[in-house]
Structures are given as C-alpha cells and as structure tokens.
Nucleic acid binder design. Structure first.
Length: 195
DNA sequence: TATACGATCACCT
DNA sequence: GGTGATCGTATAC
C-alpha cells in the first residue's frame, strides 16, 4: 500500500501530516522475508527553508537534496557520526519539508530489535530517532528510496489517534533555531493509548 | 586543508 | 545534572 498516494501528502501541510502519522505502522521487510514493525508515537515537523531548525534552512546541499525531491520518499541522514535519523519527505519537488520519526512502540520482530540494540529492555528499543533506526537496521542506503513495500521500508494505516490524545511540544535539540525553537512542532501520543 | 559542530545516545556523578 | 564517542557536513582559511 502506498501511503503517499493514499493520504495525498502534497496537498496537506507538514504539520498536519506529522500529527496524522501518529498511530500508523512503520514496517520493514527483512532480508529473510520476516517483518519488523512498530507504531509511530512521536514525530516532528520540519517546514522548509524558512524554518531555522530545518536542514534545508541553508539551502540545497548534497545532504538535503532528498528533501527537495518529491513527497513519499525517505530522507535518512547520519547524526553525530554514529546514528541515523529517519524522515519522510512531505511536499512537492522543490519544497523541502519532512517529518522526523522520533519514537515507536515495537510490534513485530522484537527479538531482532533486542539483538540490534544490545538490550533486553523493550521500552529502550525504539524510544528515540537514533534508537529506532538501529532497531530497524535503517542506514543511509535507504535515503531517497520511496516509502513503498518494494523499498522494504514503508508505512501502513494502523490506528486513528483522537486529537485529544496528541500532545504538542517544542522540538528536541534545536536550541540554535532562534524564533523557531519554540514552535510546537513535536507531536507525541501516550504509548498506552496505542495498543 | 583545517576546523567546529550536530534533528543522539550511553554512561557517569 | 554532565560528558565522551565519532564522522559527515558546512564553512573558513
């Protein structure tokens, strides 16, 4: 199922889509054909060149090229030399906006996640953007790939989250973003409301 | 070529 | 609460 078609990313705002992504399921088809999956419980919206927290704020560079491409593609980048972050591009070509997926509730493939993360603690498997990429085995090879099953990493509907269960907060780790650091563009749902 | 720093995490006090 | 790991990227020289 192609979620980018289903939800018409290009006609909705990135902030709307960041909230809309909560409760959906991130799925990865592993090389042995089994599935790793989890429910999206935390997202952040990055809203183009004018948004001082967005990587595209400094214009188009080799790193941000994917964000300038069409919606429905993964933007994966390396952070702090050792972790990856997973984003979904949300707007039409030339309009660099994306959603950072910051947290999941693990569903399928939990034993493999434990091996990859080197921990037995389920609440520590996908509770952060770098952690969920490690748990899912997501690296830069997925950058610029389409979010469809053929690419092995995609999104499916799972649960509709009522607005009252969504909390908005400032985004994490962007103190440099001046007036944009206080924008309430981080969205979280209580994991207990997902199941 | 050199340097500073980051949409993080694990581990420490 | 604080700090080190570790390297791609942007920017300065």
């Amino acid at each position: 199922m192609n979620i980018s078609k289903q939800y018409q990313w290009s006609t909705d705002s990135t902030v709307f889509l960041a909230k809309n992504l909560l409760g959906k399921k991130l799925c990865k088809i592993e090389t042995d054909g089994t599935m790793t999956s989890g429910v999206i419980i935390e997202t952040e919206a990055y809203c183009g060149e004018y948004d001082k927290a967005c990587h595209a704020h400094k214009g188009k560079t080799p790193r941000t090229e994917t964000m300038y491409g069409p919606s429905g593609h993964w933007y994966v980048y390396m952070i702090y030399g050792m972790y990856f972050c997973l984003n979904l591009v949300t707007q039409k070509e030339g309009q660099p906006e994306a959603i950072l997926i910051r947290g999941l509730q693990p569903l399928e493939g939990i034993e493999r996640m434990k091996r990859r993360r080197k921990t037995q603690n389920i609440s520590n498997l996908c509770s952060g953007p770098g952690k969920l990429c490690q748990a899912f085995g997501i690296t830069k090879t997925l950058n610029a790939k389409k979010a469809i099953p053929k690419s092995k990493l995609f999104i499916t509907p799972y649960k509709t989250i009522p607005k009252r269960n969504i909390i908005s907060t400032p985004r994490i780790g962007i103190d440099y973003a001046e007036e944009y650091k206080n924008k309430l563009w981080r969205y979280v749902i209580d994991a207990s409301k997902v199941t």
